[in-house]
Computed example of a mutant assay.
Amino acid sequence: MSGIRSFGAPLSERLPRVEIDRAALAGNWQRLAAHTPGARTGAAVKADGYGLGAAEVARTLHDAGCRDFFVAWAEEGAVLRETLGGPDTRIMVLQGLDSSAAALCRETRLSPVLSTPDDIAVWREAGAAPAPAFIQLETGMNRLGLGETDARAAATLAASGALSVTCVMSHLASADEASEQSREQRTVFERVAGLFPGVPRSLANSAGILLGPEFHYDLTRPGIALYGGTCEALEGLRPVATLTAAILQIRMARCGEAAGYGAAAPLARDTRIATVGLGYADGFLRAGSGAGVAIWPGRSVPTAFLGGRAVPILGRISMDLILLDITDLPADAVRPGDRAEFYGKNVPIEQVAAAAGTIPYELLTGLGPRVARDWR
Rank of each mutant, 00 (worst) to 15 (best):
R143N: 04
R191C: 01
A204L: 07
G161F: 06
D176R: 12
V240Q: 05
L144R: 13
M252A: 10
G198N: 00
G147C: 09
G147F: 08
A253T: 14
L219G: 13
G198T: 01
A264F: 13
I250L: 13
L243A: 00
Q249Y: 03
S170M: 05
R183C: 01
D176I: 01
P222V: 12
E235Y: 01
A225R: 00
C167A: 11
S179N: 11
R191S: 04
A245F: 05
M169A: 10
R201I: 04
T149Q: 11
A159Y: 00
E177G: 02
R201D: 08
A175C: 14
P239R: 08
T149D: 07
M169H: 09
A153Q: 13
P239D: 03
L210G: 09
E177H: 05
P239M: 10
G256E: 12
R152W: 01
L203M: 02
G223Q: 13
G147L: 10
G260S: 13
P200Y: 03
V240C: 04
A241F: 00
A259R: 13
E148K: 05
L243C: 02
D218P: 09
L203P: 11
E235Q: 12
A151V: 00
I224T: 08
R251T: 13
R221Y: 11
R191Q: 09
E232S: 08
A263T: 03
A204M: 05
Q185P: 02
E180Y: 12
T244A: 02
T220C: 10
S182D: 07
H216T: 06
C231L: 00
G236Q: 03
V188R: 07
H171V: 02
E214L: 08
D150Y: 14
E232A: 10
E177Q: 12
D218V: 06
G229T: 06
M169V: 14
E257I: 03
D150N: 13
L237H: 10
T230F: 11
T244N: 04
A259W: 09
P222G: 13
E184P: 10
G260R: 15
S202Q: 02
